[in-house]
Simulated assay, not measured.
Amino acid sequence: MMAFLSAISILVSDYDEAIAWYSEKLGFELIVDTPMGGGKRWVVVSPSRDAQTRIILAKASGAEQTALIGRQMGGRVGFFLQTTAFDEAYSRMVEAGVVFREKPRSEPYGQVVVFEDCYGNGWDLIEPAD
């Protein structure tokens, strides 16, 4: 029986650049960084060590994958970062220099704002409504 989604992967152009962005801008933890040979690494980041879903930073190889960096979701928001302290998280991200596509807004499902990672992938920072 399936229990939960353990990881997703995001195409990146450089491991160290992506690790730095996710750790410095979002405050994520580097969980694993293991060399796999041939310049490949198994790199996993997460909002915290105990988060159920983690992100595998996958270095693109070849022209087809490279062309998809920052466009994995066709311009739509594809990643959703949930918080329990929206205003605090938003302020910290603004101070860290995160690029936002809009101003925060209230929706029936909660407070939300769209931001971009270092490659332009769309993310929602969201605090669900009660």
Rank of each mutant, 00 (worst) to 15 (best):
M1K: 04
M2W: 12
M2G: 15
F4Q: 09
L5F: 10
L5R: 08
S6G: 05
V12L: 05
V12N: 02
S13H: 07
Y15S: 13
I19M: 09
I19C: 08
A20K: 08
W21I: 07
E24N: 12
G27I: 07
F28T: 08
F28N: 06
E29D: 11
E29C: 11
I31R: 10
V32I: 09
V32T: 12
D33G: 05
T34R: 07
T34F: 06
G38M: 09
G39S: 15
K40W: 15
R41W: 04
R41Q: 05
W42I: 10
V43K: 11
V45F: 06
S46A: 13
S48C: 09
D50R: 11
A51C: 14
Q52A: 14
T53I: 10
R54Y: 02
I56Q: 10
I56T: 11
L57A: 06
K59N: 09
A60S: 15
S61K: 11
S61G: 09
G62I: 07
A63E: 13
E64N: 12
A67M: 14
L68E: 12
L68F: 13
L68Q: 13
G70P: 12
Q72L: 05
M73H: 04
G75R: 00
R76Q: 02
V77R: 00
G78K: 00
F79M: 07
F79L: 07
F79V: 04
F80W: 07
F80M: 03
L81V: 02
T83F: 02
D87S: 09
E88N: 11
A89N: 08
Y90D: 03
S91Y: 11
S91M: 13
R92C: 10
R92F: 09
M93Q: 13
M93L: 14
A96L: 04
A96N: 07
G97M: 13
V99G: 00
V99A: 03
V99I: 05
V99P: 01
E102D: 04
K103W: 01
K103I: 00
P104L: 03
S106F: 03
P108T: 15
P108F: 15
Y109G: 03
Y109E: 06
G110K: 00
G110V: 01
G110C: 02
Q111R: 05
V112L: 02
V113A: 01
V114E: 00
E116W: 01
C118S: 15
Y119C: 09
D124Q: 04
E127N: 03
P128C: 13
